[in-house]
Structure formats: structure tokens, C-alpha cells
Design a protein around this nucleic acid. Structure first.
Lengths: 252, 252
DNA sequence: TCTGTCGCTTGATCCAGGTCATATGAATCT
DNA sequence: AGATTCATATGACCTGGATCAAGCGACAGA
């Protein structure tokens, strides 16, 4: 279940200051000196394999985790065996932020492909942050950002059609990949159709049909997990359209 | 638009240390001394009236706001005039947390009834928090809590039926009122059916029908804004039921 | 007190998307 | 290579909830 072949690749053991993700991850805006102090507390990059858990629902919260390479999905399992996918996380993104309050993980995190994950013990981060105002500020911003993203997702699930949801999802992937210097129009999805549909609050069949429809309409090309976005502009138009359904009256 | 009759009720000018909300709001777990320092930076309780804005979408972010009495709705207005209601906020709840990152309010906040709101300038709070570790901790928790709540809402909107949504909404109100020492079974809703439906991602008509159905089934009594919950247990059952729709297969 | 407006309800239809059923084809195991 | 399994696709149908269309009662302004 856990990383069996812990080949501690030297390649993976890169300090924060040399990490290409430093502009996406925690160290944003820290001085070189501060980054070194941060570096001391980070447990670097243990490689996990498809299906491995980063943490599980119900576990005591000790650390935040940063995706260094690969991808992770977070999901809230329900007793009956079903689950709600809460998010997909790409390199530079931080997971576990929702567990700070209750000191228990309310969701689980599983890697979707072989991934390197940095562990940041939260109590140490907290200590450090009270000595480094800019780090404190950065953490506030990070948490706030997460809230903003959830809000957007609420809008998506509350008000948008299936078509708009899938388009929004693909554009979100595209933008995030671009930020990481990867192709925003040609990429592989590490998650299954099932996971996408669950995430978007749709049925698998609907997602599948939408992919083929988008392809027929010349918006993209799909072959299994491989996606090529052909008309980003058109997709933006789909997403922007009609933020609200059935809002025929004013509210006071 | 802003509070016209600023009758500075002495009653409202209660310092944090005497505020009955101290166990819900920021001061949780602070020493008396720390609370006094917090007290110094809080601009107390300006009374606003129904329809007044606490802040507007697009405004520069300067402060967090705490609902002291009354209630507030936050919503993301869309260019076309529609809006997505993001939340309803009761005494002791803090709004504006999503604006920290971008330093701009991404949503608007309007009071639903005459309300007293405390303003907490964020930069000062931030300064203070780097000197008071327990305050810093409290803010981390607060932000994290907000994320957790959004997550729950995602689950609601992504996977639950209309019936389950309304039941969850009513139970949430009930629990929050109880926490404030008010009746958890007998209360007035300060928001319109329209706002409720918007919040829950449903049509007004659906919400209306559900209210009458719940009443027919003996779950509650409604008369306009006045709600009396008669069977909390049954409502819990409705909410707990089937967290996931259409999840017929396993995900890897 | 009357009247217009607005918020809420209720009934009648419609349709997006869920559900069911059945392929088809990758990937994995033996 | 063949077999088993799982992911994706696609067609046929069904239904929860949206939409359309009246009514109706509360409350506000004259």
C-alpha cells in the first residue's frame, strides 16, 4: 500500500531553494535565508505510486503535503462506499489545508500516478511562521486562496450545466498546466472518466458523451486519457455563458 | 446605502471581552490580556439595515467582518445580473476570509435584517497575530474551518437531491442557532425563498413545494418566514441518506 | 381603506441528464 | 496468445426538478 520501492532518487531530493516549484508553493516571496529555514522542516519527496494514500480520512492531522511531481486526488469517502471527489492536485499545490481546524483529516488523498510529495509538519510550520511574518502572510493567502477556489466550485456545481462543467474543468487543467510551463492544449488526464464525472457531479455516461460531442464540434481531440484542446476561446465562451440558471426575479 | 442613522447604541459598543460571542468569534482561547489587545484594533458594531452592504464585490480588501447580531448573506454577482448566494451568516461568524489572497473582495455581503457588524482591519490583525501565537493559530483554524464548510457544501451541491438539500439547510440553521443559545426548532428565516433556492442550486418553486411537502409529512410547520422543526431526527435521516448518487462502480 | 406590488404557492408541462443495457477495446494476468 | 477485467462509449428510456403559467395573500404606499 505504501511506497514499496523507496529508491531515494537524488533527483528528487531537491531543496526548496532549488525546487522549480518555488514560485507556486510555499516559499513565494520569502528571502533566501527564510527559505533555508523552511527547508529544514520539510521532509522531502517520498515517491508514492498509483493508488497509494498520502493520508486517509480520519487520520490525525500532522502535516500539510505539497505535490512535487505527479498528481493527487482528494475525496470524501462516505460510509456506504461511495465517494465525492473534492479535487485534483497538480505539482505545486498543497493538500491537507482543510484538516487544520479539527486536527483530523476529513478527506483522503490518493496519488493518481507515480508522484513525489513533500511533507510539511504543520506545528513546525506554524512555529516558523510566527517568526517570519512573510511566511505567515503566505499561509494566510494560501488558505484564503483555497476558499476562493471552493467558492468557484460552488458556483459551478450550483448553477452550471453539464457542458459548462466539463468545459470549466478542462480549462482549469489547461491554465494550471500552463502555469507550470507545460502545454496548456495537449496533455494527459491522470484521472478516469469516472473520477471526472464524480468531481463534476455528473454521471460517467454524460461526461463520455460530452467528450465525443466536444470532439464532433471541433473543440478538442480526445483519445482515451490524451486530450488536445483545439479551441480554447470557444471553451471560454461556453463557461462564461449564463452563470445563473433560473434567476428570473430580483432578490432584495 | 451605508448606515444612515448611526445611532451609536451604547448597548452595541461592547468590548470583545464582554461580548457574548467570544466563544464563537476570534477570541477563542486567548488570554484576557490578548483579548484586550485584539479589542483595540476592532472597530465595533456599526449598525446596518436590511439591504445595506457590508462590502461589495470588487472592493479592495481591508478588513474582516464579524456578525454580531442579525444576519448577512454573501453572494457572487455575475455580470448578467444573476447571482449565486454563497452563504448566510449568523452572529459570531466571520466574513471576508476569501478576499485575503487577492486583496479584493470577490463577493458581496448584504445584511438581511438590521444587524451589528464588527470590523477587524486585517493588516492590524495580521501584525497582532505574529506576536500572539494563539491568535495566529486561531486564524489558521478559522480559515481551515471555512474550507471544511465549503467542502461540505460541495458535497451537498454535487451529490444530493433537492429534498436532501433543503433538509440539510434547515438542520444547519438549527445547529447554528442552538450553538448561539437560541431555539434550534423554532426560528425565523431572515432570507427569502428565492435566496434559499439560489443558495441550494434549486428553483424557487421546488423549495416552495418541498416546504409544503415537509409540512404535510409532519416534519415541520411553516408559516412564511417562521419555521418550526418537529422532527429533527427524521430530517437527519433524510440528509444522511445516500451521500452519493450514481456511483455504481469502484474507482481505482 | 384601497390598491399595486411582491413574495409565495400550486398546477401543468418539458427536458437535461440520470439510469439501464449493451457493446467494444485496453490493459493485465496466466 | 488467450482470458478476464475494467474503462470508455453509445443507444433507449425515464424522471427529478426546471420552466411556464396562473392565482393568492401580505405588506407598503397613497
Amino acid at each position: 500500500m505504501t511506497a514499496s520501492k523507496v529508491i531515494s532518487f537524488e533527483a528528487l531530493r531537491v531543496a526548496c531553494k532549488n525546487c522549480s516549484l518555488d514560485t507556486l508553493c510555499l516559499p513565494v516571496g520569502l528571502t533566501l535565508d527564510d527559505v533555508e529555514r523552511l527547508d529544514d522542516i520539510v521532509k522531502r519527496a517520498r515517491p508514492l505510486h498509483r493508488g497509494d494514500y498520502v493520508f486517509r480520512n480520519g487520520e490525525r492531522f500532522r502535516s500539510l503535503y505539497v505535490v512535487k511531481t505527479g498528481s493527487v486526488k482528494t475525496f470524501a469517502p462516505s460510509p456506504e462506499g461511495g465517494e465525492q471527489v473534492l479535487g485534483f492536485h497538480l505539482p505545486g499545490e498543497i493538500i491537507g489545508l482543510d484538516a487544520i481546524e479539527k486536527e483530523t483529516h476529513a478527506c483522503s488523498a490518493k496519488v493518481l500516478e507515480t508522484s513525489a510529495i513533500c511533507e510539511v509538519p504543520f506545528s513546525r510550520l506554524e512555529e516558523l511562521s510566527s517568526n517570519i511574518p512573510s511566511l505567515q502572510h503566505q499561509i494566510y493567502r494560501l488558505l484564503s486562496k483555497e476558499i476562493g477556489q471552493d467558492t468557484e466550485m460552488l458556483l459551478l456545481l450550483g448553477k452550471k450545466s453539464a457542458e459548462e462543467r466539463l468545459a470549466a474543468f478542462l480549462l482549469s487543467m489547461s491554465k494550471r498546466l500552463r502555469k507550470r510551463g507545460l502545454s496548456p492544449t495537449d496533455f494527459y488526464l491522470s484521472m478516469s472518466r469516472h473520477e471526472i464525472s464524480n468531481y463534476l457531479g455528473l454521471a460517467v455516461e454524460t461526461v463520455s458523451r460530452l467528450f465525443t460531442r466536444f470532439q464532433d464540434e471541433g473543440l478538442l481531440k480526445v483519445d482515451r486519457k490524451h486530450v488536445e484542446l483545439l479551441d480554447l476561446e470557444a471553451m471560454e465562451t461556453i463557461v462564461a455563458r449564463r452563470v445563473v440558471t433560473g434567476d428570473r426575479q430580483q432578490m432584495t
